[in-house]
């Protein structure tokens, strides 16, 4: 019987996140794993892990989201990551007026929430500037991990990269390395470029009420949050569970789906 718990699965371009919620919306389980090269294998792996943690897929409604959402054959429904991030962020931050900035692996979304529902959104298109992938590539070039790059950036300054194209920006970083520029300063330039891109996107959605909060894989990086707050002129909130916002939203959708289905019976 599908009544005890609900499952949300967010298969992103870089990481797959899973959240299991109880009927009263408390978190029973969170899983995080790299998506790898096959969303289908990842979905299967999630199914096995859920089962061994005592939450077999047959026991609860499941909603899939993220770019790999169509590769989850056992999901009862697919919902786009925009709706899920919005819903998840409302729950995590306990607010129904909110601007959500989700910096994901391959795209960045600005989602406006009014009265607990998505009222408008923007997404980067045709370009990876200002995304997690951009940060990852630059971190690789500097031979550090993305989180190290962000902490290094706090110590740097005085340098900027002008190119918005990831490939050209990488060449700029390589020439900065060649010039003997300090790694901290290059790291600063990388984060600065992301912050500028994201804040100009967020600026196009200006005029909303309520807090601005960050979700997605980069929300655990304090320096990024601080620079984004400075650029937007308001405090950007983050939460420990911020990167699970999409999966949380999917689990909440599963909960709603189940209620709807039992009401129809």
């Amino acid at each position: 019987m599908k009544t005890k718990y609900c499952i949300g699965i967010d298969i992103g371009s870089t990481c797959a996140k899973t959240v299991v919620l109880s009927q009263d919306k408390s978190v029973l389980l969170q899983l995080l794993q790299p998506t790898g090269w096959s969303s289908v294998d990842t979905a299967e792996d999630i199914r096995r892990r859920l089962e061994s943690a005592g939450f077999p897929i047959e026991g609860g409604a499941a909603v899939a989201t993220g770019y790999g959402r169509v590769s989850v054959p056992y999901a009862d429904k697919c919902v786009t990551e925009i709706t899920c991030h919005g819903r998840g962020a409302c729950h995590i931050y306990g607010a129904d007026q909110l601007t959500v900035i989700d910096i994901g692996g391959q795209d960045t979304k600005i989602i406006r929430i009014e009265n607990g529902a998505v009222s408008d959104f923007l997404m980067n298109d045709k370009c990876s500037a200002g995304t997690g992938r951009f940060l990852e590539i630059m971190a690789n070039t500097l031979a550090v991990r993305p989180e190290e790059l962000c902490s290094m950036a706090a110590e740097g300054g005085g340098v900027s990269i002008s190119s918005m194209c990831t490939v050209f920006a990488e060449s700029e970083v390589i020439s900065l390395i060649g010039r003997g520029e300090k790694r901290e300063n290059i790291a600063f330039a990388v984060v600065d470029s992301i912050v500028k891109k994201v804040s100009s996107q967020a600026g196009r959605m200006a005029g909303g009420q309520g807090a601005v909060c960050l979700t997605g894989g980069l929300c655990g990086y304090p320096y990024l949050r601080q620079s984004l707050s400075d650029a937007l002129g308001c405090e950007v909130r983050t939460a420990e569970d911020g990167r699970y916002a999409g999966a949380m939203g999917a689990a909440l959708s599963a909960l709603a789906l189940e209620k709807q289905q039992s009401a129809e019976k």
């Binding site: 770019y67 919902v79 786009t80 990551e81 925009i82 709706t83 795209d107 529902a117 998505v118 009222s119 408008d120 959104f121 997404m123 298109d125 045709k126």
Partner: peptide
């Protein structure tokens, strides 16, 4: 009335993105 503007071309490169954006628009 909710409104969304999107820019596209005759290539297939943005199909995934368009389906997410249009899907989210209809969900709202």
């Amino acid at each position: 009335v909710p409104y969304m503007a999107l820019e596209t071309d005759y290539g297939q490169g943005d199909c995934g993105q368009l389906s997410t954006r249009l899907g989210a628009f209809i969900e709202r």
